[in-house]
Amino acid sequence: MFQETPLIQKKNRQQTIARTIFMIMAVLAIIPLITIFIYLFYKGSPALSWEFVSEFPRRRMTEGGIFPAILGTFYMVALSLIIATPIGVLAAVYLNEYAGNNWFTRIVNLAVVNLAGVPSIVHALFGLGTFVMFMNGPCLLAASLTLAIMTLPVIIASTKQALEAVPMSFREASWNLGASKWQTIRTLVLPNSFSGILTGIILQVSRAAGETAPIMFTGALYFRKQLPDSIFDQSMALSMHLYTVATQGSQIPEKIQFGTAIVLLGLVLIINAASISLRVYFRSRKKW
């Protein structure tokens, strides 16, 4: 075989060093992650029980469970997705199927990118200045609308990606058969990008569930004895609850704080994992 010259040996050494450095970087990034999980579970597991997730808080949140917060988060996320999904999907259809290659489309795209970048606290200001004002005070609906605007650009982006994955030749074949643009979208494009759209939306469920700043002033409150009666009521929320128990009042036992953190984190990660495995599943039975 070839004799390794000193130069090649040096090069190979360099490559090994580079590889090792990158690997160490990966490990360094992953270790804190694992540490955090273990730490949270270690501290929070004593609090975890069926009562913790199914009961109301008692004695100024120093005892009892976090049921109203879980339910409130569920309401807010569900309502926000009901609002954001149709608009987001249709907007992505516009961008991918109808928009021409011109300056206007550029502006729409730029608006989507910018909307995605708007800080969550600025969304909170917007929600406070509009929805809360129109509804005479913070409520579930105002919080959900604020969350909806926040999730909208990400739904647009993920849906657009799913639509782009449908080959152009399918559309052309359909047009050649006399189908109209919308017929083509309805019968071919949307059904074949459905899996991508769905996983994108599920991902948004987990994102919306974890948001705190946008709902802080628009509909979530620290503590409430009853569950909300309607969408015009305020409600507790899991993320808000975690913020409150972690920062206000030192007499709240640690296990309740960590328990709340774990429930929120667990919820978000489970939804995420579901989205990822769904994606893998759909990929395995691709139709073309």
Partner: peptide, 30 residues
């Protein structure tokens, strides 16, 4: 029906612009 759906698609397409603009406008107003 197709026309109505396409109008909805166009409106949704512009929604991002509307939202970015109104976020700016309302915060500026306050």
């Amino acid at each position: 029906r197709e026309k109505i759906i396409e109008i909805l698609i166009y409106i949704s397409g512009f929604s991002a612009i509307i939202f970015v603009f109104s976020i700016f406008a309302f915060i500026f107003k306050e």
